[in-house]
């Protein structure tokens, strides 16, 4: 095993560990844990046996194994970025709604009038 493989495998173990920890705390459903486990296991497989990626590449009709890995990674990052953005927008709107309700809770017309 060369250095880069070692780093990536250790990194994946941390990723897997984090997913398990979240599952234990009830923050991840069983299905989500399964998806993350498969993802990290897939990464370890490709890192240790790059042929797997080449096999996948042939099946998908993309030239090289390394290319498939990059394509999938970019797609995954895009997806995560998009989800993060939508979540953030949702939170922004919720905070605004909350702030608004608090601000308007006890406004009233000045009694003296004009």
């Amino acid at each position: 095993m060369n250095a880069i493989q070692l780093v990536l495998v250790v990194f994946s173990c941390f990723g897997f560990g984090a997913a398990v920890a979240r599952f234990r705390r009830g923050r991840l459903s069983r299905a989500q844990l399964l998806i993350w486990s498969l993802l990290w296991a897939g990464i370890v497989a490709v890192v240790l046996r790059p042929e797997t990626a080449s096999f996948l590449a042939r099946r998908l009709g993309v030239g090289r194994g390394a290319d498939v890995v990059v394509y999938l990674a970019v797609a995954a990052l895009f997806y995560l970025q998009f989800r993060l953005f939508s979540r953030l927008e949702d939170h922004e709107r919720q905070i605004t709604a909350l702030t608004r309700e608090l601000a308007l809770k006890d406004i009233k017309e000045p009694p003296h009038g004009r």
């Binding site: 702030t99 601000a103 308007l104 406004i107």
Partner: peptide, 20 residues
């Protein structure tokens, strides 16, 4: 009459509160 946002929400947030 003053409606006060507890935290800054930006012009859009403020105008939405103003209309409501």
């Amino acid at each position: 009459v003053v409606a006060r946002h507890a935290v800054n929400r930006g012009l859009g947030g403020a105008l939405g509160t103003g209309l409501a």
